[in-house]
Design a protein around this nucleic acid. Sequence first.
DNA 1: GCGCTAGCTGGAAACGTTTCCAAATCAAGC
DNA 2: GCTTGATTTGGAAACGTTTCCAGCTAGCGC
Lengths: 354, 354
Amino acid sequence: MGALEGDRPLGEGRRPPGGKPVSITAVAERAGVGLGSVSRVLSGKGSVSPEMLRRVREAAESLGYQPNLLARSLRSRATNTIGFVISDITNPLLAAIVGGAEAVLSEAGYSVLLTNSGGRPEIDAQRIGLLLRRQVDGLIVLPASEGDPGTIAALAGAGVPVVAIDRELPGVPEASVVLSDHYTGILAATHHLFEAGHRRVALVAGPDMRPARERLRAYSDAHTRAEVPPFGFTFGPLSAARGAEAVGQLLGAAEPPTAIILGGNQLLEGAIEAAQGRGVAVGRDLALVCCDDIPLGRLHRPPIPTVMRDTDGMGRAAARAFLARIAGETPPPEVMATWFDPRADQDRVGAGSG
Amino acid sequence: MGALEGDRPLGEGRRPPGGKPVSITAVAERAGVGLGSVSRVLSGKGSVSPEMLRRVREAAESLGYQPNLLARSLRSRATNTIGFVISDITNPLLAAIVGGAEAVLSEAGYSVLLTNSGGRPEIDAQRIGLLLRRQVDGLIVLPASEGDPGTIAALAGAGVPVVAIDRELPGVPEASVVLSDHYTGILAATHHLFEAGHRRVALVAGPDMRPARERLRAYSDAHTRAEVPPFGFTFGPLSAARGAEAVGQLLGAAEPPTAIILGGNQLLEGAIEAAQGRGVAVGRDLALVCCDDIPLGRLHRPPIPTVMRDTDGMGRAAARAFLARIAGETPPPEVMATWFDPRADQDRVGAGSG
DNA sequence: GCGCTAGCTGGAAACGTTTCCAAATCAAGC
DNA sequence: GCTTGATTTGGAAACGTTTCCAGCTAGCGC
């Protein structure tokens, strides 16, 4: 790509005082050479003589030429642009994923078109349509629901490189996926609770999609293996309100659980609030386990044990998968690790109650 | 815009089985009309007969036509695209601003090109250059430093609509700004601390830019007004590490402060950690005041008083300012409110110590 | 019936690039 | 000096749209 970079005041070549923006034609005229040659020099494709290189570069420089990427993309059928479809940028988890992906993508010369669906699948589809009309080279999606795999399938089937994060797309081999191994982390967390003496462990699993189902599978397997009857689980949205509601209900039961596993960090806020509201001391009267690291959990006294994963790494992996697809490869599904961090202090081992 | 929307499987019109993407020309042929008419119908500009409308719509529909926005933008000199330059998408504050802006912008038909500078000004400039080459219609920037106002000035001077958030751009009347009234919130917070009996109040102000300077001004004025000698302040980056470092130093002093005002939520995490590490109970032995709401502060026991502001609203305001600029208006600088929330429980009034 | 106007319509030109192809240039080999 | 082949060059065509302009048609008033 670019021969020229920020060697001149930004925004210069756009609309020079004269009026017309400086185009490749202007450079060609100034250098006294043909259009093709200028293009070859500036885009770096094709071979040119050293003399030509010098003259064109000089002319471009002196005119403050900046290529119009729109025109380039129109002709070359590649925009070096990727659509990122996400349900809620406000969620630190998703933000971290976006951040990781953006780093890799911009390094590779891609720009990210970010779209926030707000969790409504119909908006998802609408925005994806807009991105396609904008001729993005591909998409990284973190759909709000699995309800409409048809959309993704249609895309992938139409040859648009698609990478889905933490979603299963059965029957859509054309799409790549980056998955989290939620199973391992929750399995370890559940065993840890058993070891601490808990026998009534509830799971608030999150919305009925792959991550929640994997967590549930680990939760069930752990109970089976330890021969402990499962206390129960719920599916539901990932939000503070839902966390408060679920924990409130659980604590209000005749025989409440002594431990609750929360399937998403958004639940933690509400969960702590609900417990505090009932005078239940989190970490003493009630053990909580959270998924995905947030300061709230780490700084709680006692700290709240957490199933961790590398969110930045997930974003990077998704970006790499996308770049691989662009390069014509078909990267296999990538499964990213999760691990359980009990976060026990030296002087305080195991959770209370029983 | 668009007459057509998701009425057909997504990604259809891109590369039909045949091979060539379906263009306006194909629609014209199919409908047996001229190119111009198809454009007029599909873009909604210019007048056409009802019969023409019907025929073109029908042809477009049956071919699954999707307009190529790249070509449209190239010709019409407007991309309906905006560049969003931010230092760290991972920061929930910035993420909220982006979210608010994205909502307004996408509602207005704009797409957001997101760029993460990682706080390095040279990357800022480089990415801004790329965005301009992509012919964005304008920029919303939250620059990592005020060190290079030249960049912004050059842009605004070159006629690129620019909206800056929480940065002063003296001498760049072409740019619009959305500012926070940090002064009011910190003034109230400082007075609140005085009323609770604190006389040694420190300020960890954040990097030496407008927000931190405004906070310092409020801090100073409050002290002058109350005839309390200021304890002291520091500038510095907004990060958990810096929060820990600053609080550690302050607490290690011969005569440590009894209250610390933190100029950014990122500092809180490290601040609490540092206090905990020294066995200082936050809210009892040491009063903290934070800026910008985060769950960590709200759920701390006792809750940590906070200077609040409407981050989503800031993003929306910035987006509206941008749209106004696009429409040829020159919106005046907008100052968004901040307010102090003492967050005192019923049963626990005022901070301890003194 | 004629001239005028207003509204539609078709198609060329333009947007700024890349890509392709034919022509020009050059060096080397004989 | 001429031929050959490779390299370099200039410019036309193409990308898919909007914009502009000239021409056509219909409607209307006289």
